[in-house]
Nucleic acid binder design. Structure first.
Lengths: 232, 232
DNA sequence: CGACGATTTGAATAGGATCAATGGGAGTGG
DNA sequence: CCACTCCCATTGATCCTATTCAAATCGTCG
C-alpha cells in the first residue's frame, strides 16, 4: 500500500468518517495493484473476496448469460465496486475487467466486514454509498425500460457534455464498442443511431463529437433528472 | 398503529435487531393505513416523506418518462420500499400505487433517519436491506439486457413455479397487463410470447398456467441463479 | 508497407410495437 | 335471471426498431 495514495482514499465519502484505527486496519490489509488493460479482475459467481476501489484508470463491470454479454457499468476514479456482495458475503453478480491500465485497491472482504461490525461511522457511510449505488442502478433500469436506443444515446451525449463543461464538444470516454454495450445496443446500431442524430446537430469525428444544436437534441432526448442526474 | 401488527413488523430483518426504544419511537410515529386498489401512494419526484412497509395486499412501483410508463417492481407482504430515498433525504425515483386493497405502514422519513443515526443495530440492518434491494435491481437489469422477451417470460414462469411448490401448475400473481409491463413488453407481445411457449408445454387458461414439459422449458429459459435467485 | 482491429455501411431478418378489430368474462342494473 | 356494458385479453396486419451477417473502409501500430 503506497502511502501517497492514502489521503486520497481517506477522503472518499465511504472512508472519511471512519475512525483512524479501523481505517489503518483496512489499509494494512489492502493491496494496491496495477493491472494492464483488459485484465479480468473478477468473474460473476465467484465468492466476494475483495472490495475494489479504482484509484486510476477504469474498470468495466459486465455480465454474461445465454451466450450474450452486456456492459453493466463503468467505474472511474475514485469509485468502488462490488460493495453489496462483500457485505452480504455472497457471490459477485457481475464480472469486472480493466478498460485501461489501472491502479486498483483491493481490500479483503473479511476486513471490510470486520470494520463494518466494529465501526459505527463506517456502517453509516456504507449505507450512503449503497443507497447511491442502488439509485444509480434504478436510473439505468429506467433508462432502458422507458427509452429507445436513440434516446439513450442522445441523453448520454448531453450528460457527457455537461460533465465536460458545456463546450459544445464531447469526447467519448470509451471506444464505441463499449459505449454501445453500455447503452444496450450493438456497435452497428450505435453507428446508425449517430446517423439518426445528425439532423439534430450531432457531428461525429472518431471519439470527438460536436453538438451544434443543443436545443434540438434536448428536444429529442427529453432529459430527465430522475434518470440522468447522477446526484439526485 | 394497531398493536396486533407490531410483532409481525418487529420480526422483519430490518427491524428485528434494533433496540426496543428506537422501535417504539418509530411505531408511535407511524400510521397503518388501508388503501383501496389502484390508489396512488407516491409520485416520482416527490420528496421522500415516508418509508413504506406493505403489510397486506400488494404495491406496484412504476416510473414514467417520454409519455411511456413501466412497472419496475411489485412489493408484496412483508416488504419495504423507497428506503434509499428516505435515507438520502432525496426525491422518490419511482411512483407507487396499490395493486389491490392493501394495508400499508407509513413511517415518517424524519423518524427513520433519527433511528438510523441513534441506533447502531438499525444502521447495520439497513445495510443488509439496501444490499438486498441493490442486488435485486442488478438482477432485473441483467434480465433485461441479456434476455429476449420470451426468455424472460419462461424464466418468470419457472420462478413462480418454484415459489408455488413445484406442482406443475402456476397461478399468475398479477393480471397479464401488469405482468407484461413488469417483464418489459406490451400486453400483445405477452400474449404472443405465451403462444411461442406452447411447444414447450406451457398451457394457459386465464391466470392458471400448466407446465407439462419442465425440461423443455428450462432448456429454452436457461435459468441462471445470478439473475433469477432472489436470495443469492 | 502490411496486417489487424475498430468502425461504418448495406441487405436481409427477427423481435417488438402499434393500430384495429374481435372474443370473453365480471360486474351492474333492470 | 338476463341483458348490457366495460375492460381485459387475444388475434391479425402492418410498421418500426434493432440484430445478424457480410463486406468495405479507415486508422493504427509493428
Amino acid at each position: 500500500m503506497r502511502t501517497t495514495d492514502l489521503p486520497e482514499i481517506r477522503k472518499l465519502d465511504l472512508f472519511s468518517s471512519m475512525n483512524e484505527n479501523s481505517f489503518s486496519n483496512l489499509m494494512n490489509a489492502a493491496y494496491l495493484q496495477t493491472f494492464p488493460a483488459e485484465m479480468q479482475l473478477i468473474a460473476e459467481g465467484d465468492t466476494a473476496d475483495f472490495l475494489f476501489v479504482v484509484v486510476e484508470g477504469c474498470v468495466e463491470l459486465h455480465a454474461n448469460a445465454n451466450g450474450r454479454e452486456a456492459t453493466m457499468a463503468m467505474v472511474r476514479p475514485i469509485g468502488t465496486f462490488i460493495l453489496a456482495a462483500v457485505l452480504k458475503d455472497a457471490v459477485y453478480l457481475m464480472s469486472a475487467r480493466t478498460g485501461a491500465k489501472s491502479r486498483v485497491l483491493m481490500i479483503p472482504a473479511q476486513n471490510v466486514r470486520e470494520a463494518f461490525a466494529n465501526d459505527d461511522a463506517f456502517a453509516r457511510a456504507i449505507v450512503q454509498e449503497l443507497a447511491n449505488c442502488y439509485r444509480g442502478v434504478v436510473k439505468d433500469h429506467k433508462d432502458h425500460k422507458l427509452r429507445t436506443a436513440v434516446e439513450r444515446l442522445a441523453n448520454r451525449l448531453l450528460k457527457y457534455h455537461a460533465d465536460q463543461g458545456e463546450t459544445g464538444e464531447v469526447q467519448l470516454p470509451y471506444d464505441k464498442r463499449t459505449l454501445a454495450s453500455l447503452l444496450g445496443m450493438t456497435p452497428e446500431n450505435l453507428s446508425r443511431a449517430f446517423g439518426t442524430l445528425k439532423p439534430y446537430g450531432v457531428v461525429v469525428d472518431g471519439a470527438r463529437v460536436t453538438l451544434t444544436d443543443l436545443d434540438g437534441l434536448s428536444g429529442l432526448a427529453k432529459p430527465n433528472p430522475l434518470i440522468d442526474e447522477r446526484k439526485a
